[in-house]
Design a protein around this nucleic acid. Structure first.
Lengths: 134, 134
DNA sequence: TCGCACACGTTATAGCATTACACAATGTAA
DNA sequence: TTACATTGTGTAATGCTATAACGTGTGCGA
């Protein structure tokens, strides 16, 4: 997997990335929009267009099971092929991690089935230790 | 992981399951609704309520990256903890499979991080062999 | 100067999911 | 039997997520 061009960010892209970086958890596109109204954002498309670029460059990840977005937890080493997320349904905290064995197994399945992988989604939903401690 | 109670299906649940079984690929809730209008379905909630039960019993799976649903490909052995899907972005075909190594690695991460897993999502998006052959 | 690529702004619309209220059928404990 | 809880159902309204289809402006290489 290769890292996308780290081209300079535009104003809108920087604002969206900033909103996600400041947030302590994932944000929906519409929540981002609300948080950037003071900066002049008026329409969802302004957010989605910025997100498209940020996703392509690996600076932001999409959580499919949440329809939400989060800043990459490893801002220096984006671009690896498989990223997994553990999502606590109680506090909303997200833990980002990678696992070479999982990546290898998914790669093996793709090879065995002649399937060309474009994106891999691994998300585990559950309850974190802190929340389970009541 | 334990299989949910295989209680008898109601009429609505049977109709929704039937629509998904007949379909050759995943269906959105609104597509199911359209296909069941002749059976008397009028509102999205009729579909979503039936889907809730079918998902809980393992007869149907939700594809998070597609916001769509598909009948379980192994109707006899539902209830296993991790199911992976390979989704072709061209033809829409979905391949369902399991992998003990992946399940084991995700379980190891959960144990190491004191995370109680409730649901695991593994989806790979890409292009199947048939579609890549033009 | 022309044409192209890209980012941006706005309005409208499409697609996915839930809330809220009302009613009927069933099972069960008092 | 009465009272209550549970479960499934029907309908309308609403909310959340994402994209289509316009048009504008700017920078840059041919």
């Amino acid at each position: 997997m290769t890292t996308a061009a780290p081209r300079e960010l535009t104003r809108n892209q920087s604002l969206v990335l900033g909103a996600l970086t400041q947030a302590e958890g994932p944000l929906s596109a519409y929540t981002i929009l609300d948080r950037l109204r003071d900066e002049g954002f008026r329409a969802p498309l302004q957010v989605y267009r910025a997100l498209d670029k940020l996703l392509a460059s690996g600076l932001v990840h999409r959580l499919e099971s949440l329809n939400a977005f989060i800043a990459c937890a490893h801002p220096d080493c984006h671009g690896h092929g498989m990223i997994a997320f553990a999502i606590c349904g109680d506090c909303g905290q997200v833990n980002e991690f990678t696992d070479d064995a999982i990546r290898e197994r998914l790669g093996a399945w793709s090879a065995a089935n002649d399937f060309q992988t474009e994106k891999t989604i691994v998300e585990i939903r559950g309850h974190c230790a802190a929340c389970r401690a009541h």
